[in-house]
């Protein structure tokens, strides 16, 4: 392999988590309408942020998280800066607990994700309630975070495999 191709491959490996996050954003913007519109699309970027912040933070720098959040704001039509704030606060909190999660069983990490998702939901609800100056209903965000927590183990397992076999090799 030439040096240039190696460089490109390395760049691809480094950029993969960011690209998966952006794909999650596209998926959120897509009218999937699971279960006749009753099941909200899971917030996949939150799983991406949580996973790589714990297992390989150098693959997902704060700037990437900011970019993912901003893309989501642009596509959802909400206020700019909302999702970057949510994801970055999540990254900060998860990063502070990183040493606890490393090497733990997946069940424990799953519970940790449930806490992180709840925290993210609270930040979202607080900001949006302040912005609209009303106490917004919690049902929608609770359901969406519940969906995200439910799918977390599947995506976490897939990301672990991807990280071990593809991103870390070489």
């Amino acid at each position: 392999m030439s040096r240039r191709a190696e460089g490109l491959a390395a760049l691809g490996r480094i950029a993969t988590p960011t690209l998966i996050g952006l794909a999650g954003v596209i998926l959120l913007a897509f009218p999937l309408r699971l279960g006749g519109g009753y099941v909200p699309t899971p917030v996949l970027p939150l799983v991406v942020v949580f996973f790589w912040t714990i297992y390989a933070p150098s693959y997902l720098p704060a700037a990437s998280v900011f970019l993912i959040g901003l893309a989501q704001d642009f596509l959802s039509g909400g206020p700019l800066g909302l999702w970057p704030a949510v994801y970055l606060v999540t990254q900060y909190l998860v990063d502070s607990q990183r040493s606890y999660f490393l090497g733990r069983e997946q069940r424990v990490v799953w519970i940790g994700f449930a806490f992180a998702a709840t925290g993210a939901a609270i930040v979202l609800w607080l900001v949006m309630s302040l912005m609209t100056r009303t106490l917004l209903p919690l049902g929608g965000i609770a359901l969406q975070m519940a969906t995200t927590i439910t799918v977390f183990p599947f995506f976490s397992a897939a990301f672990r495999r991807l990280h071990r076999r593809v991103l870390r090799e070489a």
Partner: peptide, 10 residues
Amino acid sequence: VIGDSNDAFT
């Protein structure tokens, strides 16, 4: 329709 916001508050 090509997109939904799929966001609890938007």
